[in-house]
Amino acid sequence: MLTVDFDRLRVGPGTRVIDVGCGAGRHAFQAYRRGADVVAFDQNAADLADVDVMFEAMAAAAEAPEFAKAETVRGDALDLPYGDGEFDVVIASEILEHVPEDDRAVAELARVVKPGGSLAVTVPRWLPERICWALSDEYHANEGGHVRIYRADELRDKITAHGLRYDHQDFAHALHSPYWWLKCAVGVRDDDNPLVRAYHRLLVWDMMSAPALTRTTERLLNPLVGKSVALYFTKPTVR
């Protein structure tokens, strides 16, 4: 389930990509499949170990070109261990809402993008997220949970303040918003609730089968209740 548009980012053979806060690695895997040189970056060692296993399995199964490179790196998004302008594409999907010092994280993301390169940032969208917070404290008030709700224009201004040019905004995962509202209403940890289980089966079926009906429905609903907002930026070239 991708939140970032890789065609818009022009990720392809030889593109140097870092997925900051990669989590389970979904965006890093997609970049690797496209032949990019990928760094899956996170502070969670257990997640990175799983991502590394998947990179190895993808290589063994020829799911990525032989020339593509992929590695996992553990570290802090507030202090990325890279020089200025090292990456063609920087991805930060669903991480800034977890970071108390988000201005520092944004500065680091902007710093490592090369001139002419792209930054894609996604966060939970304001309205669906506000409903989740209203329904359940447990949804966000926990260790490592969400510490803020962004308005898209607020986040856009934070990023452009670091010299990047705003390019585009998109929305994703509208079918996931009602699922999380339901979980928040019945209890975030109550995965055995019959309604939650039924909706989860629907989402899994949709992700695995991608039927035209649900894909079209989600595309139409994304502008209204998309769970995530994706913002795209370019770092201007130096003249």
Rank of each mutant, 00 (worst) to 15 (best):
I149R: 15
A61H: 09
V225I: 15
E56G: 10
G85E: 14
S136M: 09
L182H: 03
L9E: 00
D37L: 06
G83L: 07
G145S: 05
R148P: 04
L96V: 06
T234N: 11
D52W: 01
D52C: 07
W126Q: 11
D42L: 06
E71F: 05
A152S: 14
F171L: 03
R10E: 15
M54K: 14
G25T: 08
D19P: 01
Y179H: 15
D50P: 00
L9W: 04
T122E: 02
L78S: 10
I131N: 03
G163T: 06
Y32A: 14
Q30G: 00
K114A: 07
Y179R: 01
R239M: 12
D76C: 02
G25N: 04
A40I: 05
A70Y: 08
G75M: 13
L135N: 03
N142L: 10
A62R: 15
Y232G: 06
G25L: 00
K227G: 04
R156D: 01
E101M: 09
R8N: 05
F55M: 04
G12E: 13
A120S: 14
R104N: 13
T160F: 04
K158V: 10
V147A: 03
V112I: 15
E66I: 04
V113F: 06
L109V: 02
W180I: 00
R197N: 12
W126M: 07
P124A: 09
L2Y: 10
T15I: 02
R148Y: 08
A185V: 04
R151C: 05
E56A: 15
T3Q: 13
L202V: 13
F6H: 12
V123L: 08
K69A: 11
Y179C: 01
H200G: 00
T3A: 11
T160Q: 07
F233R: 10
A62L: 08
P124H: 09
R219M: 01
W205I: 00
V73W: 10
D52L: 07
R34T: 11
D50G: 15
D137Y: 01
D37S: 12
A92W: 06
L175Y: 02
A49W: 06
L182S: 02
D76L: 03
V39I: 14
L48Q: 12
V106L: 05
H140W: 14
V90G: 06
Q169M: 08
A210R: 15
V11T: 04
A172C: 08
T237S: 14
A198E: 11
R33D: 05
H140S: 13
G85V: 05
D84W: 08
E97S: 02
D157V: 04
L119C: 04
F87Y: 12
A45H: 13
P194L: 12
L164H: 11
D5P: 01
A45Y: 03
P178Q: 03
T122M: 03
I18S: 09
R130T: 14
H168E: 15
L96N: 07
S136A: 10
N193K: 00
A36Y: 08
A40G: 13
D88I: 02
G23P: 03
L96Y: 11
D192T: 12
A70W: 00
L220H: 11
A28N: 03
D88G: 07
D157G: 01
A107Q: 08
E86F: 11
R10F: 09
E218P: 02
V90I: 07
